[in-house]
């Protein structure tokens, strides 16, 4: 199946057709924020202003707060009612290649050994329609992580904005099946295809920020006990959780109970290795100091995760750099090792 295309002003009709079978989620504005939210059935103007969201699309699969089950104390003791995401199918439209890769990366963790039913249920029920980046941001460094801003193998369908048209390409079988059922798509000509290729090439070239990953494992290992280095680079860090919460691959969580009289819920919520409480035990805390926590975060992403799952847990989306109140820069820290 070759490339398809639609006029951008036909995107509305395209999405409407998708909406018949899927809940369509796409970049929208809510409370002054750009977020992935339910499509209002009208607007497609995000094509004009959308770069990326602050909260990454991992939140659609691994929400900041997840109610796992409800418990109630009855006559016969506690009863438990599982709270699973519903089985409805959804389409995430407009996910960026970096964020789609991030999902592939955390899939490995959530599917490892004990399968995480909440995350995996949502993954199984979702179809990703990616939107290639033509104009990456100043903070992007995805190219260093083997991600091309305009291309993706991690989505089901990939769109490229060629100005007048959206060029549509099936990536997975799931995506191909869907496209073959859609009306209103025309075949793309070679002219559009070469235009898309051109755009992808120039997008990749516009990425100037780099992260030096050569000899990474050895470098990180030999620097691990370099306390002076970690103290220096963590000095300005405010030890807030922004970098972890805006990270598309950070996946740490906490589990808590909520209770009202004889019933309540068990919820899991995002947690951050940047907080001292994260590892605090009654008698000791192995990562009490800020520099240890910062070291843990980078080593987790760039050493432990590759050792355990074979992939660096960073996609170069640049959110942590952009959102950090004191401009702690991962490329600088890894580069300085």
């Amino acid at each position: 199946m070759g490339y398809k295309r639609i006029k951008k002003d036909q995107l509305n009709a395209f999405l409407r057709e998708l909406s018949k079978d899927y809940a369509v989620v796409l970049p929208s504005r809510s409370g002054g924020q750009v977020v992935f939210g339910p499509w209002d059935g009208e607007n497609t103007d995000f094509l004009d202003w959308y770069k990326n969201t602050v909260i990454p699309p991992k939140a659609l699969f691994f929400p900041p707060v997840e109610e796992m089950f409800r418990f109630r104390k009855g006559e016969e003791g506690y009863e438990i009612e599982e709270l699973m995401p519903d089985k409805g199918q959804q389409i995430i439209f407009g996910i960026r290649p970096c964020d789609a890769r991030a999902l592939k990366i955390i899939d490995m963790l959530f599917a490892d050994t004990y399968r995480d039913p909440y995350y995996l249920r949502r993954r199984e029920n979702s179809l990703l329609i990616g939107l290639g980046c033509n104009e990456p941001c100043d903070t992007c460094f995805c190219a260093s992580l083997d991600i091309s801003p305009g291309q993706s193998e991690d989505v089901d369908i990939l769109c490229t904005d060629t100005g007048e048209d959206l060029l549509i390409e099936a990536i997975s079988d799931k995506g191909g099946n869907l496209l073959s059922r859609m009306s209103g798509l025309s075949d793309a000509g070679s002219e559009e295809e070469s235009k898309a290729r051109e755009l992808r090439k120039s997008a990749k070239e516009r990425i100037t920020r780099e992260i030096n990953l050569s000899g990474l494992q050895e470098r990180m290992r030999s620097n691990f006990e370099n306390r002076a280095y970690w103290e220096k680079v963590s000095k300005k860090c405010m030890a807030c959780g922004i970098c972890t919460y805006v990270c598309p691959t950070c996946h740490c969580f906490d589990i808590n109970d909520e209770n009202r009289k004889k019933e309540g819920k068990r919820v899991r919520n995002w947690d951050s290795c940047k907080f001292p409480l994260f590892t605090r035990m009654p008698m000791e805390n192995p990562r009490h100091e800020k520099w240890r926590r910062m070291r843990q975060r980078y080593h987790h992403k760039f050493e432990y995760y590759p050792m355990n799952f074979g992939a660096i847990a960073c996609t170069g989306c640049g959110r942590c750099i952009r959102e950090c109140p004191v401009n702690v820069d991962v490329t600088e820290i890894i580069g300085g090792i």
Binding site: G31, Q33, I55, P64, M238, A239, C240, G241, I242, T244, Y245, N269, W270, S272, F275, P325, V326
Partner: peptide
């Protein structure tokens, strides 16, 4: 309600 529904408890406000 709208504003605080967005809060992700990163505690940046407190820590800075």
């Amino acid at each position: 309600k709208e504003q605080f529904s967005k809060c992700i408890r990163c505690y940046a406000c407190r820590n800075v």
